[in-house]
Design a protein around this nucleic acid. Structure first.
Length: 563
RNA sequence: GGAUCAGUAGCUCAGCUGGAUAGAGCAUCCGCCUUCUAAGCGGACGGUCGUGAGUUCGAAUCUCACCUGAUCCA
């Protein structure tokens, strides 16, 4: 039931056709305070055509309005405030939530269309830092949100598994490495070799020549080079997977950069066929002046292809493979230009589906205001942050709920939940300076706050025993419950908004709002009191629990039953 | 130099397509566990919404200029 629509119709019907229902609908707003009603129509818009003061218009319209179906409709200065019938509204929401359960909020807007999501994409032989967390966690949440909207997501981990650095890595490994070392601690050892290479090549530039040779061999399919490359890749992947397990995130594809090695020639010839390549300073470029962009560099002077060529191949491959309705790239905001170029080149190639490609940028994580960089030693390892958070959750449990069953599991859920939620609660494009204390905070607007709220709701339901809760005709007269009921009702729209904006934070904000309103209710009302409305209150508690759990799920955060 | 994004309370951020006295969390101070988990609830303190113009009945929100910061640019 769309209550806003009901309000719009009511107003429009007394306007003698001055504004259509749609026009009214767009003007209706939600007052800041509950006491000003649930919806409000500002009469300013009519002041000009009616040649009257908006206050008077509001007054007059209210007199004409049929108040049936509303608790009340009243003028307030230049506004007409609508108060919904709380009993009907509340009873409807609870009934809907309890009958649909975790399906509540599901819609079929996506009609089953496939949506590949390029996400996480760490570099082989390098540790996963906090920077990768963003892409991983935002991508994962978007995938869940898209599915909730009827799309079919495909999570693609576009690994950084190709490039000249592998020549260096092989060189370094052969000089200083050992199989045992790598097996024991793949990422750290491989990183160590790589760093050492860069230190030593300052003194011995001949190392660069060796590295170049090795990369050439790798490109030519040399057996030893290929074996080493495969091995580095699989060892790295193993340790990446440990982190993904911790986060509870899986992928549908691990096709990385290397996968497109044999698919770039086709791209170049497609560009040639369409006469898009131009010579510029010895390189082959696609001119993008009409898009107000710098030219896209396809081939360098030495014939080597570039990043964008590979991404073109990947975009085309994904279109052919998935016939996508949207193709998302969860990649940092610093690559905005790159993706503009990518889309523009595809457009020039005549692919109208380039409009369905969306770069979903996110802000930078900095450390003391500076960009993270492995070389300068400014790294924040994701694995360590997660472990710190889990440890802290453990001590909190020891302190606050020492008898808790499955304490280890809960500590994991809470710790990891805090880190994920922290990353998702603000608008994607905001940058933030890393601060461990803040990331693993459990009080205030945090993941654990939402989890705790739901755990308390579950606790009440347990205490209520197995008295089965009736989903029908639940009238709650307690005004304290109103905010919570309204929040529950808004969830389906929140799910749509999150998908339309590619914004997990919309869900996170909703979860906080629902939790906050419920905590207020919880603090002021005795839910288990034995009276006529007990079933209704329990039904509300159960609805809150269902929706909070579902909201957390959409963020990729687990919801412990107890904590 | 060009492009993009950002500038709201001490700190971190909300503020929907412009609308009713600018909202949260953290921090600080003060209350509330013989009622269902105090990881909670309530209260106090705290802001010339970067600056200056413009559009409008009405601007934190839209336009322009400037200042500051970040990022990108064979």
């Amino acid at each position: 039931m769309d209550y806003k629509q009901q309000v719009a119709q009511t107003i429009s019907s007394v306007l003698d056709g001055q504004l259509s229902v749609e026009d009214v609908y767009t003007k209706i707003e939600v007052p800041k305070e509950t006491k000003m009603g649930d919806y409000a129509f500002p009469a300013f818009a009519l002041a000009k055509t009616m040649h009257k003061a908006p206050q008077m218009i509001a007054q007059e319209l209210v007199e004409k309005i049929d108040q049936a179906g509303f608790e009340k409709v009243e003028p307030a200065g230049p506004y007409i405030n609508f108060f919904l019938d709380k009993k009907v509204f509340g009873s409807n929401v609870i009934k809907t939530v309890l009958s649909e359960k975790e399906q509540y909020g599901q819609n079929e807007d996506g009609k089953g269309g496939q949506v590949p999501i390029d996400m996480s994409s760490p570099n082989i032989a390098k540790p996963i830092s906090m920077g990768h967390l963003r892409s991983t966690v935002i991508g994962n949440s978007l995938s869940l949100i898209m599915n909730k909207n009827g799309y079919k997501s495909v999570k693609i981990n576009h690994l950084g598994d190709w490039g000249t650095q592998f020549g260096k890595l092989i060189t370094a490994y052969k000089l200083w490495g050992s199989e045992e070392e790598v097996k024991a601690d793949p990422i750290n050892k491989l990183l160590e070799y790589y760093v050492r290479f860069h230190q030593e090549d300052q003194e011995k530039p001949e190392l660069d020549d060796i590295a170049r040779d090795w990369f050439k061999k790798l490109e030519d399919g040399d057996e030893e080079a290929t074996e080493l490359w495969k091995w580095f890749r699989s060892e790295s992947l193993k340790s990446f997977k440990q982190i993904y397990d911790k986060l509870g995130i899986t992928f549908d594809s691990y096709k990385g950069e290397a996968f497109y090695n044999d698919k770039m020639d086709e791209v170049v010839s497609m560009l040639e066929d369409r006469n898009l390549l131009k010579e510029s300073r010895g390189a082959q470029v696609v001119d993008l002046e009409k898009y107000n962009l710098n030219p896209a560099l396809i081939k360098k002077t030495d014939g080597a292809t570039l990043y964008i060529t590979r991404d073109l191949a990947a975009a085309i491959y994904r279109y052919r493979t998935y016939d996508f309705v949207q193709s998302l790239y969860v990649v940092g905001a610093e690559q905005i230009n790159h993706f503009k170029q990518l889309k523009a080149v595809l457009k020039e190639m005549g692919f109208d589906w380039s409009d369905d490609i969306h770069h979903v940028p996110f802000g930078l994580i900095t450390l003391n205001g500076k960009k993270l960089s492995t070389r300068s030693g400014r790294v924040v390892l994701l694995d360590e942050v997660l472990d710190d958070a889990i440890k802290l959750a453990q001590t909190q449990i020891d302190e606050k709920n020492p008898d808790l069953k499955n304490a280890d599991k809960v500590a994991h859920q809470v710790g990891v939940g805090a880190v994920i939620f922290h990353d998702l609660k603000n608008e994607r494009t905001n940058s933030f300076d890393f601060n461990l204390e803040e990331v693993v905070r459990f009080e205030g607007e945090t993941g654990p706050y939402v989890q705790y709220t739901r755990a308390r709701a579950e606790s009440i339901l347990r205490k209520a025993g197995d008295a089965s809760i009736n989903a029908e005709d639940n009238v709650i007269s307690d005004p304290q419950a109103w905010e919570t009921l309204k929040a529950l009702e808004s969830f389906p729209n929140v799910v749509k908004k999150a998908a339309a904006q590619y914004e997990p934070s919309v869900i996170a904000k909703f979860a906080l709002h629902l939790a906050k309103s419920f905590n207020k209710y919880y603090a002021n009302s005795k839910i288990l009191a034995d009276d006529a409305e007990k079933n209704a209150r329990l039904a509300l508690v159960q609805s809150v629990s269902v929706v909070l759990k579902e909201a957390l799920r959409l963020l990729g955060v687990e919801a412990p039953e107890e904590m």
